[in-house]
Design a protein around this nucleic acid. Structure first.
Length: 501
RNA sequence: GGUCCUGUAGCCGAGUGGCUAGGCAAAGCUCUGCAAAAGCUUCUACACCAGUUCGAAUCUGGUCGGGACCUCCA
């Protein structure tokens, strides 16, 4: 499409909106930091993966062939200074009496289950950390050979000071080395690291450690930044287009990735860094340390104490897209409930629109309305091109929903619009709503033809009752259906439609 | 403590110097046997104090509040 050269992305590296130009015309390499599968997927996971799902979808819409790599972190991470070294995979495994791989498999499946419900397209490559131990070791060897890492007691550390002498360090996080040295100096006790700012590339495994691999430095496991560098490099090359993830990964994770890859490849790995903001609950970031994590299972079932009701995955998706991805998103029942109603309205409008037909009649053209619709529709692309402003696209859709409803009720006659505008609306609205924003019906996809037959019967019975002014019966049909979640809607033209909760 | 972000009507939120964002809630009206749905109308806010400017929610400085990162985290 012609819009492919006008996409602007806020690059975290430069903190500015930049025109997106792929390294190879027509192709985009997209790397998204995936989940650590040592535990249940939660609401926090919804944000980045829905955000970058829309990015992926939009890039494809623009005609790009996207290689979308999203890793699964299934190797143990140890924690840095100031805390006891600890492997999340191993610890959780012991707790659940599972092999680390059983644990990883279990939660990977749970993650995929959630992503499917959110209607997220699958990444084209989904590499695991444990499946790329060899690549990680090779990369570490390379970094050592180039003199930017050293071994201590079977562990290997990256020499940040030396790196900073040769390359620009801290560009992404805006953290200078001096600043870091100052802030970490007193935290560091008797570390085997030469410098507090250094980070581990490989960690020697203590005897009780379950996940362990042979390496040139003895048995151990990889550090927590090297996997992304190794896998991104393997599948997307030494330099690729977009690397995305949560803002909490900015430092030290992504900063370290840049350092590792730069040493190995002699150039910065990523053209555009994208970072989504966090989801907060009562103004506080959701996180394990805050004890306010809402798992996807709880979210969809409404079983978390903070939840007043269950929320459909589509409602969550919609809610997330109503806010720009770089802003924090505060979670609350009231907001979610508002989203549910709003989404319902848009889904209804989208379905209605598909059924509308344009017939040239006698209506005089409404130039003002025509221009308005033209503008609202053409802004879809404009807004998406402006750093994926999904919130604005949705705002326009709400305005169009009113027009669509009016068309349906005959308040506006279809041919008040020009036929080109009408068909523009009819084609573009669903493309953006379904294909790009990835929003879809909340109804079960079960075959509803039998249910429809039953409902048509009830609608007919109610209609007969109404003719006889037997309102007790007609209201009973309506109210009992409503009680089981089916709402009858009397339309302007006397027809009756229905919708499900 | 260091680095950075942020403070918008009852709630959620867009906003990148001048022109009604949008949604939900609330109120009134139209339609309806009554409702619901739908449509129309109303509610016009930018933490505070200075400054720049013809003009600021938007830029600058300060004050107060909230948050993130510096530890695993999306």
């Amino acid at each position: 499409m012609s819009n492919s050269n006008t996409l602007y992305i806020t690059n975290s590296l430069t903190k500015t909106k930049e025109l997106f130009t792929p390294i190879t015309p027509g192709y985009v390499g997209l790397y998204v930091c995936g989940p650590t599968v040592s535990g249940e997927s939660h609401l926090g996971h919804a944000r980045p993966y829905i955000t970058y799902d829309v990015v992926n979808r939009y890039l494809q819409h623009l005609g790009y062939k996207v290689r979308y790599v999203r890793n699964i972190t299934d190797a143990g991470h140890f924690e840095e200074e100031g805390r006891e070294a600890e492997d999340k995979m191993a610890k959780k495994s012991a707790l659940e009496k599972l092999e680390p791989m059983e644990l990883a498999t279990k939660y990977s499946r749970r993650f995929h289950w959630g992503m499917k419900l959110f209607n997220c397209l699958e990444p084209t490559i989904e590499p695991t950390a444990t499946g790329h131990i060899v690549e990680q070791i090779e990369m570490i060897k390379d970094i050592m050979a180039k003199g930017f890492a050293y071994e201590k007691n079977g562990s290997v550390y990256f020499n940040v000071k030396k790196y900073a002498e040769n390359y620009a360090y801290g560009e992404l996080s805006g953290r200078g080395l001096d600043n870091l040295l100052e802030n970490t100096r007193n935290l560091d006790g008797q570390s085997e690291k030469e410098d507090a700012v250094d980070f581990a590339l490989w960690k020697a495994a203590p005897p009780e450690h379950i996940q362990r691999w042979a390496s040139p430095w003895g048995e151990g496991f990889p550090g927590w930044h090297i996997e992304c560098s190794a896998m991104a490099c393997k599948y997307l090359g030494a330099e690729f287009d977009i690397h995305a993830g949560g803002m909490d990964l900015l430092f030290p994770h992504h900063e370290s990735e840049i350092a590792q890859s730069t040493v190995v490849n002699g150039k910065a790995p990523v053209r555009y860094w994208m970072h989504n903001n966090m989801i907060t609950i009562d103004g506080k970031k959701m996180g394990k340390s805050y004890n306010n994590v809402i798992t996807l299972t709880d979210l969809f079932a409404g079983t978390h104490p903070i939840l007043q009701q269950a929320y459909h995955p589509m409602v969550v998706r919609f809610y997330i897209l109503q806010t720009h991805y770089r802003s924090t998103l505060d979670f609350g029942n009231e907001a979610l409930q508002a989203s549910e109603k709003g989404l319902r309205k848009l889904i209804g409008a989208n379905e209605l629109l598909k059924k509308l037909t344009f017939t040239e009649n006698i209506s005089t053209k409404n130039a003002e309305l025509d221009a308005k619709v033209q503008k609202l529709v053409s802004e879809f692309a404009e807004f998406m091109n402006d750093d994926f402003s999904t919130a604005k696209v949705l705002a326009n859709m709400f305005e169009l929903a009113t027009i669509i409803n009016s068309l349906k009720d005959g308040i506006i006659k279809a041919d008040e619009l020009s036929s080109t505008t009408f068909s523009l609306l009819q084609t573009q609205f669903p493309i953006y709503f379904e294909n790009i924003l990835g929003l879809q019906s909340m109804e079960d996809n079960a075959d509803n033809s039998k249910l429809d037959g039953v409902l048509q019967l009830l609608i007919a019975i109610r209609a007969e009752a109404k003719i006889k002014k037997d309102f007790a019966t007609s209201d009973k049909v309506r109210n009992e259906l409503l009680a089981v979640g089916i709402q009858l809607k009397d339309e302007k033209d006397g027809k009756v439609s229905y919708s499900f909760d």
